[in-house]
Design a binder for these strands. Structure first.
Length: 402
RNA sequence: GCACAGGUGGGUGAGUGGUUAAAGCCGGCAGACUGUAAAUCUGCUCCUCCUAGCGAGGUACGAAGGUUCGAAUCCUUCCCUGUGCA
């Protein structure tokens, strides 16, 4: 078993768990910051560690184009290359196939696409995506899928979903044959320590386990906005068999309430003992909601991108720090936030940095937003734990450990 | 003092007789952003009024006059700036 997922407690649909990957133990539900090109834009790795980030995203398409998979592999894989020894998940490139729609052509075999950098022609298939992801050496890899566009008619949605299923089988087949080719040691004993929520380590104790440190491959459910197709996609993806399942094809322009309905309709068909990863979602409210519904992993560019654009998430709602109203505001960005940015700087200063186009604005804004997202998930985990405390005696939410 | 070159909206800078309230860029003010082609993108940015619109007036291209159906654009005088020569 390449990856272990242990559910500690559940509350309603929400689950508190540990995802034990080759490089880190990840407390779930977790928000995974996006580091597309081997960097969470603007934030040094040691700061990410300080924020409590246990798992990052990398992107196969982007790293394949630049600096190239072989370069990364030669430098110890993505972990060695970007000097990050906690967990990494790589996206397969499936989403780029969707978002670079002007530059690509999809066939059963795979996707021919033009580089957005220099226009050169490339080809991605389930096999080549897996080859690249194994070379990058993330802890968790993703099957090569087709993210169905929105809107899409039923026929198109089914056709797309069926192809994603065939690609999932091909991804798995290639992966199983080559997964030991990762650029790091695959077997070792692994000591890990999990601090309890809030950073208080009093109750945690180091555990040592013998782990098979191989990569994992997650399957991705598609099916557009159609509940029946989602159900079928989920069941058939589970049938192929993966250690974790992602819900893809959402946040592609559909109304947010539709997103939620589709997530709920999909979750019920995914095995309770496997991690469930909702791709590309969402706002702080959304990630809290979905965590409560039983989603274990989420990623989104929103906190990092919005930060660079001057949009900050706070306990009092969104703050567009560029607004003139903050020009002389001596108060902290978010009085309820304990992050290093809110502890130290005024809104007026943050606004000035942004207006003056100082690089520090991007750094501080991103640090805050990520901090807020990670805090949000800590609160969610805490509330699930508390929920267990009150409901456990009746056995309502008990969940057998794997 | 003389000779050139210039003076355009918050800044810069196009435009050199007719959809020009005046390009573009910057600045300013808002908005968007959800498996990152994103330090990006979009809108507004002279004043007043309203039925809020490819709406109606007003004011505007150093100043004042003039030519013309029509001038930021042509002419005259004046003021100012830069460079060169005395």
């Amino acid at each position: 078993m390449a990856i272990q997922f242990e559910i500690e407690v559940t509350c309603g649909g929400g689950r508190l768990g540990k995802l034990i990957t080759p490089h880190a133990v990840v407390e779930t539900p977790v928000f995974m910051p996006v580091g597309t090109l081997g960097s969470v834009k603007g934030v040094p790795q040691d700061l990410l560690e300080e924020l409590g980030v246990q798992i990052l995203l990398g992107n196969t398409y982007h790293l394949y184009l630049r600096p190239g998979v072989e370069t990364v592999r030669g430098l110890g894989g993505l972990h060695g290359f970007m000097a990050w020894d906690r967990a990494i998940l790589t996206d397969s490139g499936g989403f780029q196939v969707f978002s670079l729609n002007e530059l690509r052509k999809v066939t059963e075999e795979g996707v021919t696409f033009r580089s957005h950098l220099d226009g050169s022609s490339h080809f991605f298939s389930p096999e080549s995506s897996m080859e690249a992801q194994i070379g990058l050496g993330a802890d968790i890899t993703m099957a090569f899928d087709e993210c169905t566009e929105f809107p899409a008619d039923p026929e198109r949605t089914r056709t797309s979903m069926e192809m994603t299923l065939r690609w999932a089988e091909r991804s798995k087949r290639y992966f199983e044959e080559h997964k030991n080719e990762v650029p790091w040691k695959t077997v070792s004993s692994f000591e890990f320590q999990v601090s309890s929520d809030g950073g208080d380590a009093r109750n945690s104790k180091p555990e040592t386990r013998k782990l098979d440190r191989t990569q994992s491959l997650f399957g991705i459910v598609q099916g557009g906005m159609d509940f029946e197709l989602r159900r079928e996609s989920a069941l058939r993806t589970v049938e192929i068999g993966f250690p974790g399942y992602a819900i893809g094809g959402l946040s592609v322009g559909e109304p947010r309430e539709v997103t939620r309905e589709v997530v709920e309709a999909t979750l019920e068909h995914l095995p309770a003992d496997k991690p469930r990863y909702l791709m590309g979602v969402g706002t702080p409210e959304e990630i809290a909601t979905y965590a409560g519904l039983g989603v274990d992993m989420m990623d989104c560019v929103l906190p990092t991108r919005a930060a660079r654009h001057g949009l900050l998430f706070t306990s009092e709602g969104k703050v567009s720090i560029k607004q003139a109203r903050y020009a002389a505001d001596a108060g902290p960005l978010d009085p309820a936030c304990g992050c290093r940015v809110c502890r130290r700087y005024s809104r007026a200063y943050l606004r000035h940095l942004f207006a003056a186009n100082e690089v520090l604005a991007q750094v501080l804004n991103t640090v805050h937003n990520l901090s807020f997202y990670l805090d949000t998930m800590r609160r969610v985990r805490h509330s699930i734990r508390l929920g267990e405390g009150t409901r456990s005696p009746s056995g309502v939410s008990s969940q057998p450990k794997p």
